[in-house]
């Protein structure tokens, strides 16, 4: 488990402003964060409302599960960009000292490029899924909420995540191995 306390190592420091911190990107991160936190707030309110409805009014909210599940999709999809930007991830960094400067640099470049490929694949495939879901009118069981917008959110989240990784790769490349930490 990690909290923001581990969010202190940026791979490309010491060589000017990172592209990953350019203003439009920061705006995108902020907007994405705000919307994800909004989804979190809705989750909290719907859970509370459904407990209250069941206990106090003895009238369970049929289908509240579906709202909750889709809100969770939105929350996670929208959190992908901020998490990538803040580089909040569990890593195994025990062997960092052994793989050396070049090893760390190569590892940071390579792992980002591979991850970006997989995330673009996810975005592309989720896009097809969104089209499919829209064409066939896929919807939730109780409330008949259409599913395609939520696949579209995954497309957005994965694509932004991948793009952030590519920008980080560019930053690493510009910075060079010698200023890499």
């Amino acid at each position: 488990m990690t909290t923001d306390d581990t969010n202190t190592t940026h791979p490309a420091t010491g060589c000017g402003r990172r592209w990953a911190d350019a203003r439009p990107i920061q705006w995108a991160v902020r907007a994405s964060t705000a919307l994800s936190v909004l989804s979190l707030a809705i989750l909290l309110l719907v859970i509370t409302a459904s407990v209250v409805a069941r206990y106090v009014f003895a009238a369970p909210l049929l289908g509240s599960n579906e709202i909750l599940q889709l809100c969770l999709v939105a929350m996670v999809a929208l959190a992908m960009l901020p998490a990538a930007h803040g580089e909040q991830h569990i890593r195994v960094d025990v062997l960092d000292a052994y793989i050396g400067k070049y090893g760390r640099y190569a590892g940071d470049l390579l792992s980002r490029l591979i991850a970006a490929f997989v995330l673009y694949a996810l975005a592309y495939r989720s896009g097809l899924q969104a089209l499919d879901a829209a064409e066939f009118g896929d919807a939730t069981n109780m409330l008949a909420i259409p599913l395609w917008p939520f696949y579209a959110l995954i497309v957005l989240g994965a694509a932004l995540y991948a793009t952030m990784l590519v920008i980080q790769v560019a930053d690493l490349w510009r910075c060079g191995v010698n200023k890499h930490v």
Partner: peptide
């Protein structure tokens, strides 16, 4: 607990409060 939306309608018609789970 209802297995489905239609099941929920039947339960409602029977006077119960359906819960989906």
């Amino acid at each position: 607990r209802t297995p489905s939306r239609n099941g929920g309608r039947v339960l409602e018609a029977w006077g119960a409060a359906p819960v989906s789970l």
